[in-house]
Simulated scan of single mutants.
Amino acid sequence: MTSKIFTNFGFLLAFLFIFQAGYSQKASKIELPSTYDFDYTYKLKMTHKKGDLVLTYFLKKDAQYFGFDTADMTKGSDTKMFMVMDTNLGVTAMFMEMMGKKIVQKTKLKTSDFDDDSDNSNYTFTKIDSKTIMGYECEGFMSENDEHKITFYITDDVPVSFNQVFGANAKQMPKGFNPDWMKKYAENGLMMQMIFVDKKKSKNSMTMDCVGLDKTDFSINASAYGSMMSAFGN
Rank of each mutant, 00 (worst) to 15 (best):
T2V: 11
K4L: 05
T7G: 06
N8A: 13
F9L: 13
F11R: 05
F11G: 01
F15W: 06
G22V: 12
G22F: 00
Y23C: 12
S24Y: 08
S24V: 07
Q25G: 03
K26C: 07
K26W: 00
K26Y: 02
S28K: 11
K29V: 10
I30C: 08
P33G: 11
Y36E: 14
D37F: 08
D37Q: 13
F38V: 00
D39Y: 05
D39K: 07
Y42H: 02
K43A: 08
K43W: 00
M46V: 15
T47I: 07
G51C: 09
G51R: 06
F58K: 02
F58D: 02
K61V: 03
D62A: 09
F66R: 01
G67K: 04
G67C: 01
D69N: 12
D69R: 01
T70Q: 12
M73P: 08
T74F: 08
K75P: 14
S77C: 09
K80D: 06
K80Q: 11
N88V: 05
L89G: 02
T92W: 02
F95A: 03
F95E: 03
G100N: 15
K102F: 09
K102Y: 04
I103F: 10
V104W: 09
Q105Y: 00
Q105L: 14
T107C: 10
K110V: 05
T111L: 14
S118R: 10
S121E: 09
S121Q: 08
F125P: 01
K127V: 14
S130E: 08
S130A: 11
S130C: 09
T132L: 01
G135I: 13
E139C: 04
E139N: 14
F141A: 11
F141K: 12
S143V: 13
D146T: 11
E147V: 08
H148K: 13
H148E: 14
I150L: 14
T151D: 05
T155H: 08
V160F: 02
F162I: 10
N163A: 15
Q164K: 15
Q164F: 10
K171Q: 07
K171N: 12
Q172A: 09
G176A: 06
N178R: 14
N178M: 07
P179T: 00
P179L: 05
M182N: 09
M182V: 04
K184T: 11
Y185D: 03
Y185E: 09
A186T: 05
G189E: 05
M192W: 06
M194E: 08
I195M: 07
D198M: 03
K199F: 14
M206R: 06
T207K: 15
T207R: 12
M208P: 04
M208G: 08
D209V: 14
G212Q: 10
T216P: 11
F218V: 09
S223V: 12
S223P: 00
Y225L: 06
G226T: 07
G226D: 15
S230T: 14
A231C: 12
F232E: 05
G233T: 12
G233Q: 15
